[in-house]
Amino acid sequence: MRISKYGHSHMANDGQQTILCGALMSQGEIRFPPPEFLIGDETATPVPLSPIGQLYTYTTVHPGKAPAYSLAMVDFDHGLRIFGRLLLGEAPPALGSNVRVVPFTLSEGEIDFAFEPVEEDAA
């Protein structure tokens, strides 16, 4: 049996900002999230993605007693669409608008990522 851990994080910091990292598979496909394991002769190398993506769709979930939270599908380079938390301000964002990747802590304490709308004059 030949199985190994991929071993690279799906996130990085390029010195200025948080970015997501896809995985270039040996077949030439770029995947996000990266595979957890590599089977047989499969190889994969990290590929940094743009810090900015375009909002494809989103929703705000209202769980009842727990605080509301927002989720989004965001389009990135290499044709990838990535799911994650969306940190919303007052105004609802327009579909197609820019969002950036920011650090976010999951409920179990794991450091992860979320998306945050980009002010148009700062984009």
């Binding site: 494809y56 769709t57 989103y58 929703t59 979930v61 939270y69 989720l71 989004a72 599908m73 799911f83 994650g84 938390r85 579909l95 999951l106 992860d112």
Partner: peptide, 17 residues
């Protein structure tokens, strides 16, 4: 699912689009 997905949210996002 670890990042908060539930079935109503998936369909809500489809509805938004």
């Amino acid at each position: 699912n670890r990042r908060g997905m539930i079935m109503p949210a998936l369909y809500a996002m489809r509805a938004t689009r």
